[in-house]
């Protein structure tokens, strides 16, 4: 039995509706509105320009690069995180000495903040004094430019993101593995399936759902990429690590181009909305009880 009292219900929901309305609904509506305006900074006058901002956006080399970079980053980083998370989860699914201590420790990277994480890796990538080049040289490899190599910088940031967030994919997939009934894997063993064969044909199909969820959650999150780029490369070299978030930031807070910034925000919102709806479809099926 659920309660029916409408008055009580409105009292309960009102504070949340006010806060969310003011801080998110109103901003989103104004982004949508501004995306179709052109504002003259000097006079403050604005007029309706229809789809002109979007036309300009998709003609803009920097915007197209930002979209490509963001999508590439999203796919590469999320895939890497899910694959590594899967491998770790399979390793941790079986007991081993000290598992109790290793489990809380392996999730440390996602517990330290993105800024701390970026500060460690930015130091590691340093050409002259960085840990990575020192390690490379000590085993006879040539030092690398890392964040200053336009062909590699985006991947260098993807490595940092992967290091930080693999633990999350790991946790989701491990929970999936632990929910597989033991008799299924036992039955497979009796039928002669062992080692990687049993993993590939029996375990993986059973945790498909968790793998997909981990991938979706990580994609939604990697798509937002801002902090790491802001502090590690600032979008460079050139615009090799320019992302959509950086693009909106630059147009909104440096060039004060309200129309373009809003139009690109709207494109971001649409992509994020599409991913969220796919995710919501999978997690919101359950009823109230």
């Amino acid at each position: 039995m659920l309660f029916e009292n409408r008055k009580q219900l409105s009292t309960l929901l009102l504070p949340a509706i006010v806060v969310l309305g003011l801080l998110t609904a109103y901003p989103i509506i104004s982004v949508v509105y501004n995306a179709f305006l052109s504002v003259d900074i000097g006079s403050g006058q604005h007029h309706f320009v229809g789809m002109a901002n979007f036309a300009e956006l998709f003609d803009d080399f920097f915007f197209v690069t930002a979209i490509q970079n963001t999508l590439l980053f999203t796919v590469v980083a999320s895939t890497a995180q899910v694959l590594l998370g899967l491998v770790l989860a399979l390793l941790f699914h079986r007991n081993f000495p000290g598992r109790r201590f290793a489990l809380p420790v392996i999730i440390y990277p996602m517990m330290i903040s993105t800024l701390v994480c970026s500060s460690i890796w930015r130091s590691w990538y340093h050409y002259d004094f960085g840990f990575l080049n020192a390690a490379f040289v000590s085993v006879g490899l040539p030092p690398q430019e890392w964040l200053f190599n336009p062909d590699f910088a985006l991947y260098a940031i993807a490595i940092v993101d992967t290091w930080q967030w693999t633990p999350m994919a790991f946790l989701i997939i491990l929970a999936g593995l632990q929910s597989v009934p033991k008799d299924i894997s036992d039955a497979a063993m009796v039928d002669g399936a062992t080692g990687w064969k049993s993993t590939l044909y029996i375990t993986l199909p059973l945790i498909q759902k968790q793998i997909l969820l981990a991938f979706l959650l990580r994609s939604i999150d990697t798509f937002k990429l801002f902090d790491k780029v802001y502090v590690m490369t600032g979008g460079g070299p050139g615009n090799a690590t320019e992302t959509l978030s950086m693009f909106v930031y630059k147009y909104g807070f440096r060039f004060f181009d309200l129309g373009m910034a809003s139009a690109s925000s709207l494109v971001m919102l649409a992509i994020s909305l599409a991913m969220t709806l796919i995710y919501a479809k999978r997690v919101m099926k359950g009823g109230k009880q």
């Binding site: 801080l23 937002k224 978030s245 909106v248 909104g252 807070f253 925000s265 709207l266």
Partner: peptide, 21 residues
């Protein structure tokens, strides 16, 4: 669903109007 969408959207999307607010 709306709450979920807000949680999942990139925060930079609302940054400019939030700034003027």
């Amino acid at each position: 669903l709306l709450v979920l969408i807000i949680k999942m959207m990139p925060p930079i999307v609302v940054a400019i109007p939030l700034y003027s607010l």
